[in-house]
Amino acid sequence: MDRRTPWLVDALLGLAVTGSLAAVISSRQGGTHGPDALAYLWAAGLGALMFARRTHPRAVLLVTALGLFAYYAADYPAVGIAVPVAAALFSAAEAGRLTESIGAAAGVLAVSLLYRLLEGQDVAFVLGYDLVPHVALMAAAIALGDGLRSRRRQRAQQRELAALTAREERLAIARDLHDSIGHTISVISLHADVAREALGPSSEGAEVALRRIKDATSDTMRELRRTVGLLRADEPLSLTALDPVLDAARSAGFDVYADIAVAPGTLSPSVDVAAYRIVQEAVTNVVRHASGASRVDVVATVTAGRLRLTISDDGPPSGGRGTGHGLAGMAERAAAVHGSLDARHEPCGFIVTLEAPA
C-alpha cells in the first residue's frame, strides 16, 4: 500500500460502512421506529470512525460496539450485529489488537443473544440459523486484519534481512578494496618515490612524470579511503545526509549551496539511495572535470509525490562532465527507480536533473 495515501483507503472503507448500513436501514426490517435522519446519521458516524482506526483502533472498536447498542435501544430497523462492527474488528486486528477484537466480538454477540432470548425470540432460530453468519463474518474480519498485519510484519523482517545481507556484502567489498587495490596503489606510490630518488639531476622529465604518478596515487588513495568509509557506514545513504559529498567539494575549493527540502522518510529507500549516488557522482564530476567552475548547487524538492533533484555548476561547457561512464551510471540509477535523468550544458554551466517517484 502506498504510504502517502492511507487516508484514501480509510475514506473508501468509511464510505463502504456508511453505504452498507444505510442500505440495510432503508430495508425497514424490524423495529418500531422507522428510519429517519438520526438513523442515517448514525450510519455516517460509524463510517467516519474509520478515519481514526489507525491511531485509535481500540477507541473505534469501543465506540462502534456502544453505538450499536444505542441504535438498537432506540428500536430502529434491524441491521444485524456483524455488519456494523466488521470494519472496526478488522481495523483493531490489523493494528495488532487481536485480543481486543476477539473480546469485543464475543461481547457484542453475548449481549445480542441474551437480549433476543430474553425478548422471547425462537431459540433454534437465534442460536442456529441466525448466529452462524454473524460469527462467520466477524471471524473473517478479524482473520483478514490479523493476516494483513502478519504479512506486513513478514515483509518488514524480509527487508531487515535484506539490509543485513547488503551490509555484509558492503563490508566484504570494503575489505577487498582495502586489501587488494589499496595495497597495490601503496606499492606504486612507494616505487615512484624510490625511482625519483634514484634518478640523476639530468632526468627532469622523468622526475616530473614520477611526481605526477605520486600525486595521482595519493588522490586515488584518498578516494579509495572515502569509498571504503561509505561502504563501512551503518547509516543508509540518504539525501538528508549529503555532508560527506558536499564537504569533499568544499575541501576542493568550491562554494557549495544545498537546499534539500526533503524530510527524512519521505523518499522510498531505493529512491533515496539512488538520489544520493547521483549527487555523489555529479559532484565528483564537477570536482574532477569542471575546469573553471567555482560553485556547486544541489537542490531537491518533493511535489505531488515526485522528487526533483538538480545538481549544477558554473563551469564552462568543457571537460568530461557530459560524457563517460559516470553519466551513464547516473542514468541507469534513475531508470532503476522508474525515473528520468537529464544532463546538459547551459550558458550558466552544466546541469544534471533527476525526476523520480518519491
Rank of each mutant, 00 (worst) to 15 (best):
A136D: 03
K214T: 15
E168K: 08
E168P: 04
E204L: 08
L177D: 06
D215G: 02
E160H: 11
H183W: 11
L237G: 01
M221P: 00
A174E: 11
V194N: 09
A156Y: 00
E197C: 03
T240G: 04
V187P: 00
A162N: 09
L210E: 03
V194E: 13
A249T: 04
E168W: 09
H178M: 01
A141L: 07
G200Q: 07
A249Q: 06
L137W: 05
I188S: 00
A141H: 06
G147E: 09
A140M: 15
T165R: 15
S150H: 13
A143T: 14
D243E: 15
L171K: 11
R250G: 06
Q158T: 05
R212L: 11
R232P: 00
R151A: 12
D247P: 01
L137S: 10
V245C: 05
E223C: 07
A139N: 04
Q157T: 05
H178N: 14
D219G: 11
D247R: 08
A172F: 09
H178S: 14
R155H: 13
L171D: 08
A206H: 12
L161W: 09
P236H: 02
R155W: 12
V194Q: 14
R175E: 14
K214G: 15
A139L: 14
L148Y: 07
E197L: 15
R226C: 01
R222L: 13
M221Y: 03
R159Y: 05
D176L: 10
D215L: 13
H183V: 02
L161Y: 03
D179K: 05
A241E: 11
A163I: 01
G229D: 11
Q157F: 03
A206V: 09
L231T: 03
A166H: 06
